[in-house]
């Protein structure tokens, strides 16, 4: 599996280069700019995972194959893990640059609400017992919340004033980085963290498949 090897290489490169690479000096941000290689890719990975989850939900409604429902659930689950990691790294960064672990920023609040939306997705799944009904209803919910989630973290911070770079009239990071130094690490980091998330998801999907096989075997045993 070449992409698994690539994941390991990219992540080792990200961690080593991210921590020891020369970086442009900016007041206040200082060395904390290295968090760019850990905080921002989390959100990229989470968004791509959520897109994969939504696509699998659409595929379930189109093809009625329970496998797509399992995929959608697992991808959403991994996306939530990345979201929590993004919140933690972001909080640490905010403590250093903005002076508090949690600020009244539309992007932060939007993310928190987005997390609640997807936690409700799991509550909804647990409250339905029958497999095909649960798959259909939760697929409908997953597709319904996806545009709302996008508007929460990508549209609203641009309408309301946000502290984040590139939002609410703030400049993005690009203008401080004349040497394009950061990009040499940033793009591999994005790809590496996404591949890690995809890898975790495929493992979880396999685990779920084995679990289902065990349950089927037990049912057969009981019937015999």
């Amino acid at each position: 599996m070449w992409w698994k090897a690539l994941t390991v290489i990219l992540l080792i490169y990200t961690i080593l280069a991210g921590l020891f690479f020369p970086i442009p000096t900016v007041d206040i941000v200082d060395e904390s700019v290295r968090n760019l290689f850990f905080h921002v890719p989390m959100w990229f990975a989470m968004t791509i995972m959520l897109i994969l989850g939504a696509v699998n939900s659409i595929l379930y409604l189109a093809k009625n194959n329970i496998q797509y429902d399992i995929n959608a659930k697992i991808f959403t689950q991994t996306a939530l893990i990345f979201g929590v990691l993004g919140l933690i790294t972001g909080s640490l960064w905010a403590l250093i640059t903005w002076g508090a672990l949690w600020t009244n920023d539309p992007k932060l609040n939007g993310t928190a609400i987005g997390m609640l939306l997807y936690l409700a997705y799991f509550v909804l799944r647990n409250s339905l017992e029958e497999d095909s009904k649960r798959a259909t209803v939760s697929a409908v919910y997953n597709i319904l919340v996806f545009p709302i989630f996008l508007s929460l973290i990508y549209v609203l911070p641009r309408i309301f004033a946000s502290l984040h770079p590139g939002n609410g009239g703030n400049p993005g990071f690009n203008i401080y980085d004349q040497a394009k130094h950061l990009r040499i690490v940033f793009y591999p980091a994005v790809i590496g963290w996404f591949l890690l998330g995809f890898w975790i998801s495929t493992q979880l999907i396999r685990l779920k498949k084995i679990e289902n096989q065990f349950i089927e075997r037990e049912i057969i045993d009981i019937n015999e």
Partner: peptide
């Protein structure tokens, strides 16, 4: 309860 936890965050934006 399910209705409330699903619709409150959905209506927030």
């Amino acid at each position: 309860t399910l209705m409330a936890i699903m619709s409150l965050p959905l209506l927030l934006p």
